[in-house]
Structure formats: C-alpha cells, structure tokens
Design a protein around this nucleic acid. Sequence first.
RNA 1: GACUCCGUAGCUCAGUUGGCAGAGCAGCUGGCUUUUAACCAGCGGGUCGCAGGUUCGAGCCCUGCCGGAGUCACCA
Length: 530
Amino acid sequence: MSRPLTEQEQIRREARQDLEAFGVNPYPYEWTVDAHAAEILDTYDDDAHDPAGEGTDPLRVSVAGRIMGRRVMGKASFFDLQDSTGTIQVYIRRDDIAEGRDFYNKVFKKMLDIGDLVGVTGEVFRTHMGEVTVKADSLQVLSKALRPLPVVKEKEGEVYNEVTDKEFRYRQRYVDLTVNPEVREVFKQRTQIIRTLQRFLDARGYLEVETPVLQPIYGGAAARPFITHHNALDMPLYLRIADELYLKRLIVGGFDGVYEIAKDFRNEGLSRFHNPEFTMLELYVAYKDYRWMMELTEEMIAHTATELHGTTDIRVGDEDISLATPWRRLSFFEGLRNATGIDLRGADRESLLRVAEANDLEVDPALGKGKLYDELFGELVEPTLIQPTFVVDYPVELSPLAKRHRKHGDEGIVERFEVIINGRELCNAFSELNDPQDQRERFEEQVRLKEAGDEEAMRAVDEDYLRALEYAMPPTAGLGVGIDRLVMLLTNQDSIRDVILFPLLRPEQPQEEAATEAEAADAEAADAEA
RNA sequence: GACUCCGUAGCUCAGUUGGCAGAGCAGCUGGCUUUUAACCAGCGGGUCGCAGGUUCGAGCCCUGCCGGAGUCACCA
C-alpha cells in the first residue's frame, strides 16, 4: 500500500526527524491561545500599544495557526500566520527569540515550512510598511505538516495560484477550507441559517425532535430509498426519504408543534442540485392549515435572510430577488393556464399528453396523470418563477398526503403549496390529510402505481400510520424546507456541493482495490463476531 | 443512465504540423535584521489519469476504461 513520496514529502519527513534530533517535539500536546488574528488587527492601536512609543502599554499576545507564507531575510524573517479568524503577520529575529540563535537558524529557517502549525508569543507593533505584526519572542512547533500545502498568493486583490480544481476541493475539503477562507464563511453561514430557523421555531413553542433514520417502511415522499439490513432482527431497513409520517404521529400524540432538521436519503442521481443525502426541515403544527403555514413560511425565510444579511434583498447569480413579504400566490392551474392557454383542471391523461406534445415536451407516454401534471408545471411554469412564489392548490394525484381542498376538493384539488424561488422548489407544504379512510385509499392507489411500475410510488400501506390517524390527528399544517437549497439561495452558491462539506464523489481508489479491501474488512468483522 | 468538455511537476497553467516535456509559485543550496506575489544567484523535481492501437517516433492522432465539471433525464 506504500505510495512513492514526492521530493517535497521526503524533505518534510526529513525535517520532522531533524526536529526530533534537535530535541523539538513535532507534535506537542497544547498551546495557550489568548488572541486571534482578526481581534488583534481590530484592537491594535498605535497610540496605546506601540512597543517603541513612550508611555504605551504594549499588546502582548499568544497566537497559534498555520504558516501560510514565509519571507526569510537572513537574520530576520516575516511569516503569515493563519488562524480561524484570519491571517496576521509575524516578525521573528534571530537575536530576539527566547529559543536562541540555533533555533532560528536551524529550526525556523531549515525545518519549518508553509503549512506547519506553530504557536507564537510576542508584542504587537506596526511595521514600516504599515502592517500590524506580532514580534515573536517565542515560537513553538505545534504540528509538522508532511505534505506541501498549495501556496495561494494575493496582491492588490488579485489571487495567484488559487486552488480551483473542484475535484481537489471536494475530496480534500480540509485543504479547500485552509487555502480558500471564503469557503469557511459559506459553512459558517450554513450553521447560522440553521440556528436562526431553530430559534425562530423554538420561540413559537415548537419542539425539535428526532425520529428514526432507519425505517421498516419508508414514506412521506416519492423517491427511491437506500436499503440496508439489520443483522440481529434479520430484516431489511430503509434509510428515511422523509420524516413526515413519524412527525405526524407525534401530532397525534398531543404535541402542538414539532419539527426536525434532519438528513434524508434518496437513492437517485447526483447533480448540481442533488446529493444523495441532504438536509430537510420538516414542521407540523396542530390546528392550523396551509394558509396559515404560508404566512409562517414567508416570515421565517424573510427573517432568516435578514438575520444573515440585514436585508431581504439578495443577489442570486444574475438575479436580484426580494424576499420581502408578502410573497406572490399563484394557483397551480392558473400557472398552467398562463403557460398553455388551457384550463387543465380535471383533464384526462390523453389531453395532458397532447398539451405536452403541443409544447415540445418529450414525456414518457406511460406516465400517470400526477406525473404528467408535474412534468408540465416543472417545465413550463417553474423556470419562470424567479421572485418568491407560493404555488397553491395541486392536483390530488401528486399529493397522497394532502387534504382535499375545502372548496375545490371535488375538482381533484388538494390544499398544498410549494415555494418556488429562482425557478427552483424550496418548500413544500399542505393541510395534512387526517381522514384515515381517505388516507388508506390514497396509499392503496400508490401501491397500485408501484405495481404498475412507478419506482417512486410508495410500496406499502403504512398500517401503523393509519392506526395513528384512526386515533384522530388534529387538523394540521405541515411544511418541508430543503435546507441545502435554502443555503444555496442565501449564500449565492450555484452547486449543492458548495454547501455540503463532504459531498458524495466516486471513490478515488480503483474499484478492484477498494472491493478487495472491503472483503477483507467484512471477513475481519465476521471473525470478530464469531 | 445519455451527451459535451476537461485530466501535463506539490499548486496554477503553457506545450506549435506528431520530432529532446516547459514557465511562475512552492522545494533545495547560498546571500540578505521592517518584508509582504519580498528580493538576488544557482540547483533539483514528471507513470503527461490508466490500458491498448496507429507511427521510424505520441503529451498531441484512434479505441476502451477511470475520475471530474456541465447539460439532459429523475428528484428536493
């Protein structure tokens, strides 16, 4: 399994040995950090802190971070130290550091490299060139890097040798985060967005809960699942494709509002907008309907944007988008009528196929009505909806868990909305179906679709869920929000891989080699069990 | 899954008609005590994604495979 080392890797391994020979532990145990780069740059004041000034009180700091650049000038050097907050320059002089001349000449100049982690103590001053700098009086190696870090330089806003290779960046996210600091910002914002949503929902008294990832019957969405197996029970289990059915059981159980921010898993293709595991917010509130949920949704998203950016006006790609409330409402069939000139309420399969053809859409003629509606709307209407829009009142065929419309139920319409922003679906919500008999019929229709070949239809009637409904579930409003897409929208990232720290990629090892290793691991596991 | 484009040094990239594989940064040696893409002098570093084929000769042309990006399909 040994890999030939590059020249630079060999040199760094030698340096590591040289450090040990010199009596320096290349991997010591701790360092006291009492200041960070951003804070030092922010607080340093020439009048108050200049060590050369009269009556000043020098600012002493102890910092730690990664060496990102070195400028060695004989008996004195500068280097850039990057920590979690930014980068600060360090000035180190042969005759000024506590560790002595040998340490400077041999350890600092010969054994340390870009990429190494070091700790520095010293006083902060401003150089002739005007840069706030820590003048090191002590330097300690904190962790020796054995691989060369890509060196990115910058001058007057121009970035040189920026690491741009997407594959490199996704596979070695640790390097990406180190050399592209703006990537860290995106992920900090991701966390901030999720926290804001949690605080918003917590403030309204809704309970954040956890429901099973491993499910004997999957449901709550139309998607193909990942299948796994439980050894002790000797039964198949599915990784959840949605939290919906479990959360609604909790509403039956008496909670007024529950939500979960969780990973769902769908065994489908990868793309700029799809990762096999992704994060969903699902929220269910008792005694409310989808109209109420619309108001909550727009308020929640607008609030999240404001918390993040201080405004509801955001720039996404080439579009200026306003998340200010209230958002436009457009009925599903009105949208279709605007696009096709035809009122398609209650249309049969054949006429939907004709409309598809008339609009140059290639569709599988075997598709059911629900899928056809979905196809037409997705192709003809969705891409035109840039500003936030509630699309309301969907056909029943598309929505097996939504309640029939209170006025137009007879026309095959349910109380459901989706939020479309920048041409993409962001949220999905309905007045939840709580009539157990109606729900059973919808499930059975799904099973028929499944048997007719629709791979995404639900494969089994969830009898326990129906049992729960039979104990009576209150009228309930439910909402799902695609968190990854929300983060993409609010951070202006055009690929889901740029808002997921470790997106799924094919393994870089050759398949055969990986397979052999997996077999070996399985054999080992079997031995251990025996 | 289909199609298009891409894969050359640690990083960013050149590479002509098929004719000795290059640059900048990084690295190594030496010099330089306020530099900042530090600078000056010198030196090393390559399975050109992998495997075949065509050819006197392939980084370059052809075929297959691997990996990535994009578009489409499915989905959120």
